[in-house]
């Protein structure tokens, strides 16, 4: 989101199963601390990070999401209208990588190509227990148009680069969208309209989302 005067507001969601280190990652990035008692922030679920990229002010709103399986269905509510998504997996746990694949599919369906995807293989410090090969992860990332990073919150590896790179891409994407909107005057209204409608949508069922459908079905049964 640009709000004029060359500054950007980007919403970035952190997706990934529980215990892959989403929170550590973001805390390391924002507070530069790991498992520290002196972390000043009260919570690690919503954090702002201000960057200056190419002379432009960029404000990243990083949204953490609940990774438990039971909350999986709530994903769309979290990542709607997000500019970027970081999909985190644990390199020692192959299941978490499978989860990432699911998330990517969902995001693609819901947000199309508007969202910039980054796949982060966390816990690089435990590389001796690696269960997800770098090559495989890289190949998959390329196939879905995402960037792949190996990070370690503990050792503070690859995190800064990952966020900066994502910011760059989001700015590019934003510029493209602006251009597209400039070309068609309706574009802006359409996008705005879309934004509004997304809000509405969250309570409606995306027909292709089976999990979501099941939820709402459950609700109807319960309410009837």
């Amino acid at each position: 989101m640009s709000n004029g005067q060359g500054s950007y507001n980007f919403k970035v969601v952190l997706l990934g199963e529980g215990c892959v280190g989403k929170t550590s990652l973001v805390l390391r990035y924002v507070e530069d601390k790991f498992n520290d008692k002196h972390i000043t922030t009260l919570q690690a679920s919503f954090l702002n990070k201000k960057l200056n990229i190419n002379g432009k002010r960029v404000n990243l709103s990083i949204w953490d999401t609940a990774g438990q399986e039971r909350f999986h269905a709530l994903g769309p509510i979290y990542y709607r209208m997000s500019n970027g998504a970081i999909l985190v997996y644990d390199i020692t746990d192959e299941d978490t990588f499978k989860k990432v694949k699911n998330w990517v599919k969902e995001l693609k369906k819901m947000l199309g190509s508007e969202v910039c995807l980054t796949i982060a293989g966390n816990k690089e410090d435990l590389s001796k227990d690696r269960n997800v090969s770098i090559e495989e992860a890289q190949r998959y990332a390329d196939s879905v148009g995402a960037k792949h990073f190996l990070t370690s919150a503990k050792l503070n590896q690859g995190i800064e680069e990952m966020f900066v790179e994502l910011s760059h891409r989001m700015m590019e994407r934003h510029a493209e969208v602006e251009l597209a909107q400039a070309q068609s005057t309706l574009g802006r209204a359409g996008s705005m309209r879309r934004n509004v409608m997304v809000v509405e949508d969250d309570m409606m069922v995306p027909p292709d989302n089976s999990v979501k459908g099941a939820c709402c079905g459950g609700y109807r049964v319960a309410s009837s």
């Binding site: 972390i39 679920s45 999401t65 609940a66 438990q68 709530l74």
Partner: peptide, 20 residues
């Protein structure tokens, strides 16, 4: 909620704790 989680979690609570 984050305040009350802080006392039981012992650190900044993440979304994993917050949503429930």
């Amino acid at each position: 909620i984050f305040l009350l989680l802080q006392s039981s979690v012992g650190g900044p609570a993440s979304a994993d704790e917050f949503l429930p």
